[in-house]
């Protein structure tokens, strides 16, 4: 069941120049949240931002009744959200969309940029099943990989940076451990990265889930603005996604 709720900001952390994290407390009881689901955040105080902004659920703490959002500052809406302080309220519509299946015994989670956001909750969901995923995070430089340590208790953490400032030098798909033996791959990040990871998995018959970040107006399947091309035609990313089985996205990945 979807909800619309005013949350209270209990913590705000700046993570380098481009990212910040907001931890938000629910007034009563958080509903169950699947990894990969997202919220639609109301942005107040900027007349040019009318629509809500879709943001992944980065972390969930059911005992503290909090959820955390990891936000990259890219434009007017996210810049406005960066002004929020502890104690402010934030209105969310949530939990939205269809999340990850949490499948496989030897999963690889590949994230880039803001796309690493949903992977923390996902790594924790694997961990809760007794599975230790390999987590491969990429970015142009190390400053663009805002969260690292938080992942360490839940899996094996690997880093790739294009400038070599941290971990292996190069793209995530060039990391030596990228082509190790995994039975499932989950990916979220820049479109070219997701397409490359998806193609790699599909060509080798490895199960793969891709989390898309199309622009949205409503976030709840009402406006049909957020569609992606799937093998069954246009599907709403906000409702049938954001997580799709890569096999449904062959056309999108350029495999057909």
């Amino acid at each position: 069941m979807k909800q619309i709720t005013d949350f209270t900001i209990v913590s705000r952390k700046q993570l380098g120049d481009h990212y910040f994290a907001l931890t938000l407390r629910h007034p009563d009881q958080l509903p169950p949240i699947a990894a990969g689901q997202f919220v639609e955040v109301e942005v107040q105080g900027n007349r040019d931002v009318m629509l809500r902004r879709p943001i992944s659920i980065h972390d969930v703490d059911p005992t503290a009744n909090t959820l955390t959002l990891l936000i990259q500052i890219v434009g007017k809406g996210t810049r406005q959200l960066a002004q929020l302080q502890e104690g402010d309220r934030l209105n969310l519509i949530y939990p939205l969309g269809h999340g990850f299946a949490v499948e496989g015994q030897h999963p690889l989670l590949v994230g880039g940029g803001a796309g690493i956001a949903p992977l923390l909750h996902l790594a924790k969901c694997y961990h809760a099943k007794g599975i230790r995923p390999t987590i491969l995070l990429g970015g142009r430089t190390k400053d663009l990989i805002p969260v690292r340590e938080a992942f360490e208790p839940y899996g094996e953490l690997l880093i790739a940076t294009e400038d070599g400032s941290l971990g292996e030098k190069g793209m995530v798909t060039q990391h030596p451990q990228f082509s190790a033996a995994y039975d499932h791959i989950c990916t979220c990040g820049p479109t070219p990265m997701m397409k490359a990871v998806g193609r790699y998995a599909v060509e080798r018959g490895i199960g793969c889930e891709v989390s898309l970040e199309n622009m949205m107006a409503c976030g709840i399947g009402a406006c049909l603005c957020c569609v992606t091309d799937t093998d069954e035609g246009h599907k709403c990313v906000c409702k049938e996604g954001p997580v799709f089985d890569a096999l449904r996205l062959k056309k999108w990945m350029g495999l057909e």
Partner: peptide
């Protein structure tokens, strides 16, 4: 109907443009 190709929405000052195209 499949409607028009993505992208088919853009936010504008106090409004939005859509080109869903009757999907």
């Amino acid at each position: 109907r499949q409607g028009n190709p993505y992208p088919r929405m853009a936010e504008t000052p106090m409004g939005m443009l859509n080109a869903v195209g009757l999907q």
